[in-house]
Design a protein around this nucleic acid. Structure first.
Lengths: 234, 234
DNA sequence: CGCCCTTTTGAAGAAAATCAAGGGCAGTGG
DNA sequence: CCACTGCCCTTGATTTTCTTCAAAAGGGCG
């Protein structure tokens, strides 16, 4: 296992010169395994690494005063978090593993050196951050209508996984309904009912941890999903 | 009028060496006036400038399929937007003026040169973006409870204005209730009722476009507001 | 003064939360 | 092999929150 997944992820956004690709792939890093449901980074900590997801699913969340949780983003293999390290800023949210997963920890000094020496990479990290932000804002925009919002989340994940799973209309969705609810800002019970609606509309099936997209065109219609904001290649 | 407000804003996040401050303040730019309620940047356009707010209030928003609007962020003097220009990415949301305002337009080439030559500035822009993101995520976190959410927005604006207005417990709030509702993800009617609740609790008064914070301690209690995420000096 | 924009309030209805209970399934241990 | 347990999904009934629709009441400005 290495950072070439990270390099590929970066290369989605810029023409990556061969020397800069090598610079990424030769970054020193350590691997950390995190078990399902365990925190990878705690809110309030100032990380000293950039974290790259090597495999598994990871998420960002914050806690409310009543103890309830809101998931504010999902990180898939190749995604990174912890840019806070570069700025010496404490995390405003926590990072949790939704599956057993492996993270690459890259020391901030190496990231700084990379940013200074590899302009294309620096630009790509900005681009990746803009996409990340665009996703957050879509979540804000959608939090109005649970059906549309759930449909949109499924479209988002379908699209983001398209590259790795290559066009498959099913993907492993390791989240339980409570997680999905926490991502949408609704309760687990309501998530259940909303998911049932999508099922009864003949758009999706969720079985054995796999989400099967039956009618992507109609699902996108319901979601009002326009994939451009993800800046992924067609 | 010049970019020194922008430089100050940047300098909140890093120790800005004198030469880098001069680099910012000597950036060539043009000024653009935008009238209240007019769009400054349209969703889908790829900007070719970095936009810095010189004066007035500006906001980011997206439209839903039913035509309703969600405001996803507010920009105050010194704040910037349009980093998309650097990455050649189309905007995923639009930028609108809430008051007559003036924007500084800095060509992307100059920004790229600045980023390449001024490491502290580059780091500060990352930091500013992280704060921006943290604000978005707070909005996501709060969108659950309209009272808490409105209280939190007022605390956020109070805190962000603290530096410019210097400790005043009142500030000009040029948004109408419909705007506030669009920022919170609730209707104007419900915003009105929620605001009334805060008024009847003796926490705020809103008169003649000014928001008077009567009991900031209690307001922060209601909002569960913890200012650290804004990375502002004490 | 009269007009337009905004705020305020009421009443009815919809969406989602909450509370509660039952059911399936996988792993564990007797 | 079966009972037990824990975790998750599912469904029903009730309550709360917010929306929608409608109308009236400021308030500033030509």
């Amino acid at each position: 296992m290495s950072l070439n997944l990270f390099a590929n992820s970066i290369a989605r956004f810029v023409d990556l010169p061969e020397n800069e690709r090598r610079a990424i792939e030769s970054l020193p890093y350590t691997t950390r395994k995190v078990k399902r449901r365990r925190e990878a980074i705690r809110c309030g900590d100032t990380p000293s690494y950039l974290y790259v997801v090597l495999d598994g699913w990871v998420g960002r969340y914050g806690l409310r005063s009543d103890g309830s949780r809101r998931i504010t983003g999902l990180l898939l293999p190749g995604d990174f978090c912890g840019i806070h390290a570069v700025c010496h800023v404490p995390m405003d949210q926590s990072i949790v593993a939704f599956t057993d997963c492996r993270l690459a920890l890259i020391e901030v000094e190496h990231i700084e050196a990379l940013l200074a020496g590899s302009p294309a990479v620096a630009k790509a990290l900005w681009h990746a951050k803009l996409v990340d932000e665009a996703i957050s804002r879509k979540w804000l925009l959608n939090s109005q209508n649970s059906l549309q919002s759930l449909a949109h989340l499924l479209c988002e994940l379908h699209e983001r996984q398209r590259l790795s799973i290559d066009g498959a209309s099913s993907f492993a969705l390791p989240l339980i309904q409570e997680d999905v609810g926490d991502a949408l800002g609704i309760t687990a019970v309501h998530t259940n009912r909303t998911l049932r609606q999508l099922r009864e509309m003949g758009l999706v099936r969720h079985e054995h941890g796999f989400m099967h997209i039956i009618d992507i065109a109609e699902l996108r219609q319901v979601a009002n999903f326009e994939p451009e904001y993800l800046s992924l290649p067609r």
